[in-house]
């Protein structure tokens, strides 16, 4: 039997164009055997959630370096709730000050990965969360 493949959406909400981290993570997840849907820059929360629905992903990975995470991450979570798809695991990465993390966890972002993260930690995290 083919068995289940973990499907991950890697998205960059907001306007910042720094996609080195997003692309490196996308590749690392692919190399860990996952199917990664990469949608590129300047995604609105609405686009991200609609894509997650159509692609039936298990995980959404959001990357922001501009500081707009405090606004955009909760917006994504809100839309997931509206669409009754809160079962999707959401993780975030980028330049995210530690003091913002509790607030982001509270709205349902399960993992926050800041610069210097080993991609194996992200892979492990996803595998544990998606069973």
């Amino acid at each position: 039997m083919e068995g289940k493949k973990i499907r991950v959406l890697i998205a960059k909400p907001g306007l910042d164009g720094h996609d080195r981290g997003a692309k490196v993570v996308a590749r690392a997840l692919r190399d860990a055997g996952m199917e990664v849907i990469y949608t590129g820059l300047r995604q609105t929360p609405e686009q991200i959630v609609e894509t997650a629905i159509q692609e039936d992903v298990d995980v959404i990975g959001l990357s922001i370096l501009s500081g707009a995470h405090t606004h955009l991450f909760p917006k994504v979570m809100e839309l997931l709730k509206e669409n009754n798809i809160e079962d999707i695991v959401v993780i975030g990465g980028g330049v995210i000050p530690e003091e913002d993390i509790p607030e982001l966890k509270k709205v349902g972002i399960e993992g926050i990965f800041t610069p210097g993260t080993d991609t194996h930690d992200i892979i492990k995290f996803i595998r544990e969360k998606v069973k």
């Binding site: 306007l15 910042d16 609105t44 501009s66 500081g67 707009a68 405090t70 606004h71 955009l72």
Partner: peptide, 10 residues
Amino acid sequence: TMSLGEVGKV
């Protein structure tokens, strides 16, 4: 609308 959350940030 695309500016939401980004104004004055970077």
